[in-house]
Design a protein around this nucleic acid. Structure first.
Lengths: 153, 153
DNA sequence: TATTTTTATATCGTACACGATTTAATTGTG
DNA sequence: CACAATTAAATCGTGTACGATATAAAAATA
């Protein structure tokens, strides 16, 4: 047994932020082979989920839900458009705003994607109850962190 | 009340993976102003934590602990080197390997960074017990996800 | 020993992610 | 109405993050 090495592992692991950081990457790696089949990246998939829930949203509306800036979303949405999953049109009522809408292909993709969430939940190895509690704790923490970040700025 | 809009919010929020994704970004945003003072980014900070725990590690050793590839670490470590926090030297015993070591500046930075973890824990708004349980649940989930990702590949 | 295989980094291309700035359109105010 | 202030996206620069590939060194094997 290499106890010294083991202690070091445990030390980095003590950071809650690091656990979140590494889980985030782990999700990404798990999703990749599933999403490759759909021609989506993980962030693109999340945007599509948001659009399946509510079609025809502005960039800023998507940004609020995803906690992302236009500097991130604009190129991502252009890629979704290039792949034929969405259209981007200036809102005639307010030319500053860009409406993002699903194409037929984008809507059709939903069926193919429907199996993924259960597949992923299985992979977490968590029972529904633990998953729900964890999800709830994480959202609470996120809101706290966002509030804290705002104060520091 | 706009119940339709509210439901949509809740739907995206139902995804555990999305909670992790957004918490990860929230941590990043919270850390940024604190780490700016030290001249570090968040991933760079995590690498420094790993080196403060054990100096003089190979790139792959850091990679195992951080769950990162050399394609990510090499440029990151070069930036840490450019900032004078670490040195990178080929191991004379095995010229394939690169040893990463802290400079005096890199070691000194530890004191400045010592206040950060408590500061961050405060910002999470969690009591120690919840934080520990959450951390433990996340690590378990990460190991499950990594195992699942390996199976899918 | 010569050759193959494996291992450790590095490099390249693609895709986020954000802060700072820019551009264009709308709103607010005198 | 004119002009300032605000708002919505887009653009730019820096820094992750990873897969595929390249390179060089070490280990394994013929």
């Amino acid at each position: 047994m290499d106890d010294a090495l083991n202690d070091d592992f445990l030390q980095l692991e003590r950071f809650l932020c690091f656990s979140v950081y590494s889980v985030s990457h782990a999700f990404n790696r798990l999703y990749k082979p599933l999403l490759d089949k759909l021609g989506l990246t993980y962030p693109q998939y999340l945007v599509m989920v948001a659009l399946w829930q509510e079609d025809d949203q502005s960039v800023s509306s998507i940004g609020e839900k995803m906690y992302l800036e236009s500097s991130t979303l604009t190129p991502l949405l252009k890629r979704l458009e290039a792949h034929g999953f969405v259209t981007r049109k200036r809102d005639p009522k307010d030319e500053r705003s860009v409406r993002v809408s699903l194409t037929a292909d984008g809507k059709a993709l939903r069926q193919k994607a429907e199996a993924i969430p259960t597949c992923i939940l299985d992979a977490t190895g968590l029972d529904i109850e633990t998953a729900k509690r964890l999800n709830s704790d994480l959202r609470t923490m996120r809101d706290q962190l966002e509030a804290g970040a705002k104060k520091l700025t």
